[in-house]
Design a protein around this nucleic acid. Structure first.
Lengths: 238, 238
DNA sequence: TTGGCGGCGAGAGCGGTGCTCTCTGTTGTG
DNA sequence: CACAACAGAGAGCACCGCTCTCGCCGCCAA
């Protein structure tokens, strides 16, 4: 196998025309698939329709993606990365509470812009589809961002551990160890609350996008803003 | 043949054997569809497979459901009702906090028992599927249950409005009116928090079922219990 | 009692899907 | 230059949702 040389980066400059064409077409397929995703929804995404739109025959597409699930996996990873990028772009700045709210807004904004891609990663799993290990790293970008914010908040004394936050014991404390290793300075009670808050964020966005809020809190702009602030207070951010 | 039952007058006077057979087969179709749903997921549910399993030809099934979406709608309504029933069965009792926790557990337990039916109602919407108005009433059973619990809590003085809960203003206050009409005694600030808590509950369950918690809080039993209690405290229930 | 209507299941068929296989032409490399 | 890897085309398989037609038979009314 020669590809081994490519992966070492040894021959990056001398990419053959075929290699370039392959990379380009792979990207074009994803772009077209994403385009169709805006109008049709993940489970109805059709390989044949994508290839048809690209002027190729459906069997040719299998040179680039071994199956429909493979294409979906690529789209899922891209979606996680796009969301992570949007959230990371909103991070930074001096005021940590403002940064918190900015991250929240960025996540919601991205989700509302690309609802089908959001559904791809936070909706019901595709039947018969098993998420490969390659998706977990991109999936952790947003939670890691929140965790990092909490570390900085703790360091700068802007994190006031809520007095009514119970310190976890037993299995819960054990599970929280994973988070403790990522943010050792942050109190365990706050870390558990971070998961609570994290689930609230995506529950709220899912409800908004999937129509569960229609008739009560839709449009959800002000509710979202209020919830963001209350959740920030809930974990002790000020 | 069932005609002997007919002649003995065993059956309902107003219902002909044909009507009864129709109702029975309609139910059988739903049962079989639900059975297949446990193994295959909503978007891959196949009318042909259901009819095949029932020993009929696929076109015959269209006498009972005008389309696949019609069958899905029926399943969705049934799922909302099953969840509502499970939650309502857990309600009641003297200790309101225990009742709160029991409702939470019932919702999670039902979701874990029927994950595909849960995904049907709280997962990403089916592409090209528009929820008809008939689904909204069954969908409100769980939130109405929580609201009723809060009314009783308020009446019995077990609801201590959290001091840091902001009273909504502007659009948010206006939207909350819908809830105020349902639970006039409960302070508006608590009503907004109820929506927050409601989204947290389903966000948490979705994350657990859809595999977002794997690697951090899975199995989620203790986390769920802790979150339930903290959310009860968050709305001031004690 | 009987004629007819309407619900019912069977079957064929249409256009779509994911996916496989084979064949032919092209591209890059020893 | 020869050869191997690769790309696309096309046919084909089994499945899908859905429609239409055609007999059969339960049911109601004359």
């Amino acid at each position: 196998m020669l590809s081994f040389l490519w992966h070492t980066g040894f021959m990056n400059a001398g990419r053959t025309a075929r290699e370039r064409a392959r990379a380009e077409l792979t990207e074009e397929i994803k772009v077209e698939a994403r385009r169709q995703l805006t109008t049709v929804g993940a489970e109805a995404l059709s390989l044949r329709a994508v290839s048809r739109e690209l002027g190729m025959v459906s069997s040719a597409l299998y040179r680039y993606f071994r199956s429909r699930d493979d294409l979906l996996t690529a789209l899922i990873i891209d979606a996680y990365d796009a969301l992570g990028e949007a959230a990371e772009a909103a991070a930074g700045g001096d005021d940590l509470l403002e940064e918190w709210l900015a991250i929240y807004r960025a996540v919601r904004s991205w989700a509302r812009t690309c609802p089908q891609e959001y559904a791809l990663i936070y909706g019901s799993p595709i039947s018969g589809y098993k998420a490969p290990q390659t998706t977990v790293a991109p999936a952790t970008r947003v939670p890691l961002l929140l965790l990092d914010l909490l570390r900085r908040a703790q360091a700068s004394g802007r994190l006031a551990v809520p007095p009514d936050a119970p310190t976890p014991t037993g299995v819960l404390a054990q599970q929280a160890q994973v988070l403790v290793e990522l943010a050792p300075e942050v109190p365990t009670a706050v870390l558990v609350r971070t998961i609570i808050v994290w689930t609230q964020l995506f529950g709220m966005i899912s409800f908004e996008l999937f129509g569960q809020l229609v008739g009560s809190m839709d449009p959800a702009d002000e509710f979202f803003d209020s919830a963001s602030r209350q959740m920030a207070a809930f974990i002790g951010l000020r």
